[in-house]
Design a protein around this nucleic acid. Structure first.
Lengths: 128, 128
DNA sequence: ATAAGGGTTCCAGTCACTGGAAGGTCAAGG
DNA sequence: CCTTGACCTTCCAGTGACTGGAACCCTTAT
């Protein structure tokens, strides 16, 4: 498989796949003229990475997850702990964003949104 | 006011305040030896910026908001529209994170988290 | 004189890509 | 055989919003 084919199959941009090779997440073979040649195992790894990234895992976490995936002697507790920690960061981000959302909603609700300059949104941002 | 004093008063790191000067958000005066001298208006601007950033507005949006704040002839509709658009991005991010959270919760729930290698989390990431 | 505790600039790094330039390779068509 | 176009390659720079650190300057107190 060429990089274009595997990009189509995984849905990852070719640039991203090259980047993943750069940082050592994958090691595709090369043909005589230097083109990357992807095996089925590379495809699985990239699909795995794509899904882990889609769940918001950092590249560092993805590296750990891939290592656990390839370790026949792993303990599922290690995977679970990593996922649990990640879940907590995601929940923290949601809480932050929800607080922003609520404030924004209030402010927007209180603003007339007409041609006059008077604006509670700016008033709030400028409050002492 | 020195940068340290205004950093204390606004809660912004001195580094951030220098950065805001770099990108032209503020223009503090300088004393004879090159130290920044912050006036009360600088303090207000920085406090404004701090609150806008805390609501998640981008630096670009903050620049627009500051300009609107200083424009006596603004229309509150312009402020409201900006806030509305930002609210929508925030809501989009929340939706993404909530989808991640729900999947993560399911996966974590289904994983024994013991010393055995069998792990539904990895199984899901590796699914075809 | 010196030490502490400010301040200054400038450069590099973060994260995970993304864009673009300059050039090599390959298959198909004329 | 030559060209065209679609691929592929590497390398460098930029993104956003800071953050860390080095090297150096200024002021005040001892």
């Amino acid at each position: 498989m060429t990089i274009g084919e595997i990009a189509d199959r995984t849905g990852l941009p070719a640039k991203t796949i090259r980047y993943y090779e750069d940082i050592g997440l994958i090691r595709p073979a090369r043909d005589s003229s230097g083109y990357r040649v992807f095996a089925e195992t590379d495809f699985h790894k990239l699909a795995f990475l794509g899904r882990a990234r889609a769940l918001g895992f950092s590249i560092g976490d993805c590296r750990t997850l891939l290592a656990l995936y390839e370790d026949e002697n792993r303990a599922s507790a290690d995977v679970k702990r990593l996922a649990q920690q990640h879940l907590e960061t995601v929940e923290g981000k949601i809480a932050l964003l929800e607080a922003m959302r609520d404030t924004l909603r209030d402010l927007i609700h209180s603003c007339a949104g007409d041609s006059r300059p008077d604006c509670p949104i700016l008033k709030d941002l400028a409050k002492d």
